[in-house]
Design a protein around this nucleic acid. Structure first.
Lengths: 154, 154
DNA sequence: ATTGAAATGATATGATATATCATAATTTGT
DNA sequence: ACAAATTATGATATATCATATCATTTCAAT
């Protein structure tokens, strides 16, 4: 997870929500900040705990799930289906529109990189799949392996 | 899920286990048969229920998980991480060695096709990823969308 | 200020998965 | 054929992830 300028990202997130006429409430902001500051993907329950530490207020896990849903709908957060954890989008502050995210998940340290897989490659993948008469929804890829640091350790 | 000759597949599974010196017990066989006969991926709890119907014997879910682990280790079953369900490998009876599986998951009818994505494509994907200094474990891809039948219905 | 809509809380419960210790079945060495 | 060791399975408890539902609060528009 590359370091991000949390403040700048939050500003961009607020602007993006304002532009879309949706409300980035202070609780939703806290959730997003928790994820931005996290060093790895977090489960909803972990997020609730981090929220408590950060704000000294309890938050029901139910609410965390709802806020995560909101943040996902607005492309501020992604869910990693392969381990049931959530991660802040790495491209909130980027100007370009969001493409389908691709994740490299380190099975040793759990860190995740959100990469832009070559567009042509994705396109080719889609074509290959449509040969099978299958209509792709959203080709979010989650690829497991070892990050550079953890490769060196072993 | 294409129709398979269950009997033939089971024979091949037995041979494969024998070759590897591992025990395909009758309970493990039942679990595999349940998945071979299923029309879609099943959760461990669903498998336990199907097992009961098939054999008229109760089986603890804990045991189901263990047997699924065994079957996965021996490439007879795959787990779909994106929906926490299990599926029999579509290539048990194929002679060629198992490659990394790629799944097309229909979000409408839940059916899954295990396809061979073009090898070159996978290779290109791996290269792109290694540009990011990431060492891929096993690029199992799970792609969500609509199968041919369900496209026509909508 | 009133009202309607959206957000959040509270509570319950369902669904998925693992830890751990006990028992049974199978294999192995003699 | 028997005992010991290994492997497989059972039983029980509990952790973890997620959703359903109804109540209350907050916010925005008039």
């Amino acid at each position: 997870m590359a370091k991000v300028d949390t403040h700048k990202v939050m500003q961009q997130a607020e602007r993006s929500c304002a532009d879309h006429g949706v409300r980035l409430t202070s609780k939703r902001k806290h959730i997003l900040e928790v994820l931005l500051n996290a060093q790895a993907p977090r489960s909803a329950y972990e997020i609730a705990e981090l929220y408590r530490q950060k704000t000294e207020e309890n938050i029901p896990v139910m609410s965390v799930y709802r806020m995560l849903d909101f943040l996902m709908q607005n492309s501020l957060v992604h869910k990693l289906a392969s381990n049931n954890k959530f991660i802040a989008c790495a491209h909130i502050a980027c100007s370009h529109s969001h493409q389908t995210p691709q994740f490299l998940i380190c099975d040793n340290c759990q860190q995740v990189r959100e990469i832009g897989v070559d567009k042509q490659l994705i396109h080719a993948l889609e074509e290959s799949i449509e040969h099978n008469h299958f209509q792709l929804n959203s080709p979010q890829l989650e690829l497991h392996g070892l990050c550079e640091t953890c490769q060196q350790e072993s």
